[in-house]
């Protein structure tokens, strides 16, 4: 009997593997192959008029290491750092407090961060343009309150882009922290209070370390995309703030230099991979909390 059930298990396992096969095929076709294509493309030359010249070259990668493009990478990293720090400072408390609330409030707080997703990201960004532009909503309010005297001209500045990034990526941080804080056994906090910790001390010695995995995966989930969200820099930063994503988009479209765009993408991918690797080393797991 034992043998029979074992045989059944093996069969079931095989059946299960067959069931997930489509996912593998899908991933291979739509993720794996494009990667290979991108990688190969990055070693080719741009054709004179349109398309690609099939000769091997390292020229694209050499070009990336010119000060101008390195500068774009540096700007992207700087922006990613700034927005990730802001997002963490805003998102961690929100996610943590949401997890501590009763069911009703949890629902309300969750709804607040999910509602914006019902509208297209581009349309929402145009909303920010209306807020930020000269004599826009923000200026009118500030001047109406007598806090400022003339328009601040916030649109097309660095802070405007940061606000756009925070706005777009905050939910990822909140959800990652929330799912981690939700799992936190509150009895541990009670135990710490019982052993003599003030509520502040209990937070830093128990709650915070135990929700750190959520925070870290939130950092990855916001840092990585914030290097590539070119349309935010485009719409709120004008052409003053040029991120790697913007350069790639430009080379792909106006520049008609697909191989160079590919090379930039490969470098960005490597950078992302390094960040994930760093995360793995710090968090001790490759699983991201919250979304995956």
């Amino acid at each position: 009997m034992a043998k029979q059930s074992q045989g059944r298990k093996v069969k079931e396992a095989k059946g299960n593997r067959l069931l997930v096969l489509p996912i593998y095929i899908f991933t291979l076709l739509f993720v794996g192959l494009p990667f290979v294509y991108l990688f190969l493309l990055s070693f080719l030359k741009r054709a004179e008029v349109w398309g690609v010249d099939f000769t091997f070259t390292l020229e694209n990668y050499k070009r990336i290491f010119s000060p101008m493009y390195l500068g774009n990478f540096a700007d992207s990293l700087k922006l990613a750092f700034t927005s990730t720090i802001c997002i963490t400072l805003l998102g961690y408390p929100y996610g943590y407090i949401m997890a501590r609330m009763n069911k009703q409030w949890k629902k309300r707080m969750l709804l607040l961060i999910l509602i914006p997703f019902f509208t297209s990201a581009i349309i929402r960004l145009y909303g920010w343009i209306i807020v930020f532009r000269s004599n826009g909503v923000l200026d009118k309010i500030l001047m109406g309150l007598g806090l400022t005297e003339k328009p601040l001209k916030l649109l097309y500045t660095y802070p405007a882009v940061v606000v756009g990034m925070i706005y777009a990526l905050l939910p990822f941080m909140i959800l990652a922290v929330y799912s981690s804080a939700e799992k936190l056994d509150y009895r541990l906090v009670e135990a710490s209070r019982d052993l003599g910790a003030s509520s502040w001390k209990a937070f830093w010695t128990v709650s915070f370390p135990l929700t750190l995995p959520g925070l870290l995966s939130g950092v990855v989930l916001t840092f990585v995309p914030s290097m590539g969200l070119f349309f935010i820099a485009d719409l709120l930063g004008g052409n003053k703030i040029v991120l790697v994503g913007n350069v790639i988009q430009e080379q792909m479209t106006k520049g008609r230099n697909q191989p160079f765009a590919a090379a930039l993408s490969v470098v960005l991918l490597i950078l992302t991979w390094l960040i994930l690797k760093l995360y793995r080393n710090i968090a001790g797991t490759s699983e991201l909390e919250g979304i995956f």
Binding site: L188, S192, V206
Partner: peptide
């Protein structure tokens, strides 16, 4: 006053 909790509540980290 200190407590020994039912589920022990040891700090896992």
């Amino acid at each position: 006053v200190n407590t020994v909790f039912q589920n022990y509540a040891l700090f896992p980290h």
